[in-house]
């Protein structure tokens, strides 16, 4: 009984920290998803391009990112690249860990989103492009006006999965000292050694956030799906 009350006490004490950490987690995840969508759309289109150079660049990017662990990418970017910079120039370089986190997570999610976007574009009936072209639209106009808007509606569910995966993966940024959700919990543990209640609280916070995201995704799916039911 006293154990339970001690645990509850720890959870109540750590909760304000965890909420602040959640904000950082949400901030990093949202920015990364936004930039990841831009990167993903560009490289998804690149992979479908008729220009060989664009196709190869996209394939190299996607394969490298998907074929290496995110943790390694984080360490390479945060410690490796500044190291290279100071070896070459002789000057030190330090990057803000949050900025570094957003950059790495954007690049990482961009590669996964690229495949989602590519599949979405390819799922649109060929007749849509032909109809647009037969009306005198050029290829990029047809892509922008006709193909991409339809493809984006279709890829909302896999994008939601990517959003959730990204949110959970952002916990890896704890290793470079980003004060996100997991890290704030760990800092509290290092002061109090209350590992069990705090990790449970951290896990529950992630759970709440991911449930909120899946609700949000389901809602936007309903909102955007109205015109498309055939």
């Amino acid at each position: 009984m006293s154990l339970l009350s001690t645990y509850l006490e720890h959870i109540i004490k750590v909760l304000p920290d965890l909420i602040v950490g959640s904000m950082i987690t949400i901030e990093i995840t949202s920015f990364s998803l936004f930039f990841g969508m831009i990167l993903g759309t560009i490289s998804g289109l690149g992979k479908l391009s008729r220009k060989r150079i664009l196709r190869y660049l996209s394939i190299v990017y996607i394969d490298f990112i998907r074929g290496t662990p995110l943790l390694v990418q984080i360490l390479l970017f945060y410690y490796g690249l500044p190291g290279l910079y100071s070896n070459v120039t002789g000057n030190p370089l330090s990057i803000d860990p949050i900025i570094a986190g957003i950059i790495v997570c954007s690049i990482n999610s961009g590669a996964y989103i690229a495949e989602i976007v590519r599949a979405g574009i390819q799922s649109i009936d060929r007749g849509q492009m032909e109809a647009a072209r037969s009306l005198g639209m050029n290829e990029s106009m047809a892509m922008r006006e006709i193909i991409l808007p339809q493809a984006f509606r279709r890829i909302i569910p896999p994008l939601g999965n990517e959003f959730i995966a990204l949110l959970k993966d952002s916990s890896l940024l704890a290793v470079i000292g980003v004060h996100e959700l997991l890290k704030t919990g760990q800092l509290y543990i290092s002061r109090t050694f209350a590992a069990f209640p705090v990790y449970i609280a951290v896990a529950l916070m992630y759970l709440i956030l991911t449930i909120l995201i899946s609700r949000l995704v389901a809602y936007s799916e309903r909102r955007l799906g109205v015109s498309d039911r055939n």
Partner: peptide, 22 residues
């Protein structure tokens, strides 16, 4: 090519209307 296609309207077997537009 786009100029040519502006001058030749095309109607398809499967309509190919844009489903996301009224």
């Amino acid at each position: 090519i786009n100029k040519i296609r502006e001058e030749a309207g095309m109607v398809f077997q499967h309509f190919n209307l844009f489903p996301h537009k009224t």
